[in-house]
C-alpha cells in the first residue's frame, strides 16, 4: 500500500493548543510540510512570539527559541547572526508584530535580515481574551471596543503588507488566506517561496495569513471562515505586494 498522505515530521504528537476552528494549527502544519519538502527541517530554528502562537513550541519538532512580546524579529536577528546556516523563522500575531513589536518588524525588514516571517492576522487579541488589535476592522466588536471599533475614537486598522512592502530591505511580501482548499494550496506556495528565499540567501520574506478566531469572534468555525472571505478580504486584499 502506498502512502499518499501522512503527518508532517515537523509536528509532534502533543495535543493541539488551539481552539476548534482556529487556523493557527493549519498554518503550523503548512510551514512544517514546506520545511520537510525543502529538506531543511533539521536545520530550522523556530522563533515564537507572545500570543496564541507563543505556545507552538510544544508541538514543533524543530529547535525553538521563545521571545518576549514583540521582540521575535530581534531574537531572530541574534540567532541568525550566530547560526547563519540555520533556517530561522518567526510565527507571530498582529498584536506582536504590528503593535508592541512594530519597531522590530520594520527594522528587521529594513536591515534585510535573511529570515522568514509568518504573520497571522486574526483581527483581534486571541490569547488575552478578545481585545481590540491593530488589525481589528472598523465596526468589529472586541472587549475593548464593545460597541464596535469606531475609527474616530479607536483609530484605524493597520495593513501590514502594504506597509512592509514599502521597506527597502523586504524582498517578498504576500497576503494569503486559508479558508478553502484552493487558498490553502496558494498559501502553501507563498510559504514555500518565503523559505526558498531564505535558503537562497535572498533576504527578508513576509507572509501574512488571514486567520480566524472563532472563540473571540463568537462565531462557529464555518462562519469564521466566511467572515475571512466576505469581510476581511475586503479590508485586507490578498495578493503579492512585493517580489524582488
Amino acid at each position: 500500500m502506498s502512502v499518499v498522505y501522512e503527518r508532517t515530521k515537523g509536528l509532534n504528537q502533543n495535543q493541539s493548543i488551539y481552539c476548534p476552528g482556529c487556523t493557527h494549527g493549519l498554518e503550523h502544519k503548512l510551514v512544517m510540510e514546506v520545511l520537510e519538502e525543502l529538506g531543511v527541517l533539521d536545520r530550522t530554528i523556530g522563533i515564537t512570539s507572545v500570543g496564541c502562537s507563543g505556545l507552538m513550541f510544544r508541538i514543533l519538532n524543530t529547535e525553538v527559541v521563545t521571545s518576549l512580546h514583540g521582540r521575535a524579529p530581534a531574537v531572530a536577528t541574534g540567532v541568525k547572526a550566530v547560526q547563519p546556516d540555520a533556517i530561522v523563522y518567526i510565527h507571530q500575531g498582529d498584536g506582536d508584530a504590528l503593535s508592541i513589536g512594530m519597531a522590530e518588524t520594520i527594522s528587521a525588514a529594513s536591515r534585510g535580515e535573511n529570515i522568514t516571517v509568518i504573520f497571522a492576522n486574526n483581527n483581534i487579541y486571541g490569547m488575552t481574551g478578545g481585545q481590540m488589535a491593530a488589525t481589528t476592522m472598523v465596526g468589529d466588536k472586541a472587549t475593548t471596543c464593545p460597541a464596535g471599533r469606531d475609527a474616530s475614537l479607536d483609530g484605524n486598522p493597520m495593513r501590514a503588507c502594504e506597509l512592509i512592502s514599502q521597506v527597502e530591505g523586504a524582498k517578498y511580501v504576500e497576503r494569503v488566506a486559508v479558508y478553502d482548499v484552493p487558498h490553502i494550496i496558494k498559501a502553501k506556495k507563498a510559504i514555500k517561496k518565503a523559505f526558498q528565499n531564505q535558503i537562497d540567501g535572498h533576504g527578508y520574506s513576509f507572509v501574512e495569513i488571514l486567520s480566524t478566531c472563532p472563540t473571540n469572534w463568537h462565531l462557529d468555525p464555518l462562519a469564521s471562515m466566511d467572515k475571512v472571505k466576505n469581510e476581511m478580504e475586503a479590508v485586507y486584499p490578498l495578493g503579492v505586494f512585493k517580489d524582488e
Partner: peptide, 26 residues
Amino acid sequence: GVFKQAESELASINMVYGAAAAGGRA
C-alpha cells in the same frame, strides 16, 4: 564577529538573547 546597531535597547538585549540562545558569546 557581528556588530549590529539595534533600533532600541529593547531590540538590542533581545538580539543579545537570540545570539546567546544560539551559543554565541554576546
